Computed example of a mutant assay.
Amino acid sequence: MTHPTDSGKTAAALRYLRARITSGEWTLNSRIPREHELMVAIGVGKSTLREAVRSLTSLGMLEPIRGVGTFVRSRTPVNSVIADYIADFPVADILGYRRSLEIESARQAAVNRSEEQLQTLTALLDDSRNAGAESTLPFSHARAPGSFHHTVVEASGNLLLLNMYTCTIAAVRRHRQSGDLQAPDLPQLRREDHSVILRAIRDRDPHAAAAAMAAHVSHDITPGPGAVGPTG
């Protein structure tokens, strides 16, 4: 039986980790501090910290990768049932669905975004972590859309869009790891695309925001050499 003190320590560790994820202090696809650093910062032991990490991993918010570290995968819990359902579709269908979610999110973000969200997007544009790339990771664990994209979806103000997006990106990452998808490493092009999207959202121009996002998502993730085409 878990001692109440242990339970309280685990809850404290969970609050600490989750607060840094949901606030964006730890950006999507970034590696969180090492285990020893977190134990010192939170004031808990290894088993307590690992229990908290396991809890957030089960929610799809963290992903531990053996020998590399633990990475932020979502700022909100991911519905694993929906993510599994989406992942079962052909790669082309998943990319098309993801494209439609991001385009509509950009359109709604241009109308509904707050000044705080605009400031966050502006900061992320110049944040090297926003590339979403873990350069130390093996190829199979490479990049998926990061904090800039997620913040655009949040700025839409549409909770259903956000929930479906987090599930879709979980499915995208799964296919990315298996080699079915590829994300070309083009940081300058990505920054230019993000700049155009940001400008349209800043100017509250929904048509321009949707067009800019459509152009961007057409090339930021593409089917890999081993991808299976659509069925039918």
Rank of each mutant, 00 (worst) to 15 (best):
L118S: 14
P138K: 10
P145Y: 09
T122K: 14
T22W: 08
R173L: 05
D203R: 09
S135Q: 11
L159V: 12
I221C: 05
P4M: 12
D220S: 11
L198Q: 04
A209F: 00
L137H: 05
G43Q: 11
M39C: 12
L159K: 08
R66M: 08
N29V: 04
H219D: 13
L101I: 15
G69C: 04
A92R: 04
R107M: 13
A106N: 05
A200W: 00
S218Q: 13
D203I: 06
Q188T: 10
V172S: 02
R143K: 12
R199A: 13
S114D: 15
P145K: 06
G24A: 14
H150W: 05
A19K: 11
P225W: 07
A123E: 15
L59S: 08
W26V: 11
E104R: 10
R31V: 05
Q182L: 08
G60D: 03
H36Q: 14
P230C: 08
M1E: 15
S58G: 08
A155D: 01
I86G: 00
L162W: 00
A209L: 01
A211L: 10
G226K: 12
Y85C: 11
P145L: 07
R143A: 08
A19Y: 10
A11Y: 06
T5K: 11
G146P: 00
V228Q: 13
Q182R: 12
D93M: 11
T222Y: 04
R75E: 05
P145A: 09
G146Q: 01
A209N: 01
S80V: 07
P184E: 08
I169Y: 01
R173G: 05
R202S: 09
N130H: 07
L49M: 04
I21C: 06
I65Q: 03
R66C: 06
S30D: 14
R129N: 14
P138W: 06
L161R: 02
R199F: 07
T151I: 03
F89S: 13
A171V: 04
G67N: 05
L162T: 02
